[in-house]
């Protein structure tokens, strides 16, 4: 098996990576490139903890081969904001209890970003459907839904400024 050189952008940073074809994008991001904010919860597409934005769409990175991400723009939760400059979605999650143990949170934040990019004012049902691929065992989703709503309002308010 021959490794391949791929180029991809992660959180705005360009990477060139020599990688075997049988490595998943999740493994490449975590083990090879050090983006450990992308979590491994099941490696089977059941839990959504590994969700990243790929060219703007929320996908399970565990279900992709890294070589399939050649030329792609990947955004992880850490790419949306930082401790110094958190994204409004991240602030809303932090303020409203959207994160308890926090393990599902990066994937949840990514899925939320994808949702709000597509539907700036989602209904509760739209929120729940959009997050239905992100399992959370701690919150019961109630405060997550509230956080998404609050984030939507924050973003809308920022728009109109």
């Amino acid at each position: 098996m021959e490794p391949e050189v791929i180029s991809l952008t992660v959180n705005g940073r360009r990477h060139r990576l020599l990688i075997d074809p049988n490595v998943t994008l999740l493994q490449a991001l975590r083990e090879h490139l050090g983006y450990v904010d992308v979590k491994n919860g099941c490696e089977k597409g059941d839990c959504g903890a590994c969700a990243v934005l790929m060219n703007g769409k929320a996908v399970n990175s565990c279900l992709m081969l890294a070589v399939q991400a050649h030329g792609a723009e990947i955004v992880t939760a850490a790419g949306l904001g930082s401790l110094e400059h958190p994204h409004p979605i991240q602030e809303a999650f932090a303020d409203l209890g959207g994160a308890q143990c926090g393990y599902c949170t990066p994937g949840m934040v990514v899925a939320t970003k994808a949702l709000l990019d597509e539907i700036p004012h989602p209904s509760e049902e739209e929120i729940r459907v959009a997050l239905s691929g992100n399992l959370c065992r701690c919150t019961g989703y109630g405060q997550i839904v509230e956080a998404v709503r609050a984030a939507a309002e924050k973003l809308a308010a920022a728009e109109t400024v």
Binding site: V38, G81, P86, H87, I89
Partner: peptide
């Protein structure tokens, strides 16, 4: 008061380093 928890922001920005990280 429902203050923001001290560990919350770190978790939402993906800065919290778990055991497998």
């Amino acid at each position: 008061k429902p203050l923001r928890r001290v560990d919350a922001l770190s978790k939402t920005v993906g800065a919290t380093v778990y055991a497998g990280d």
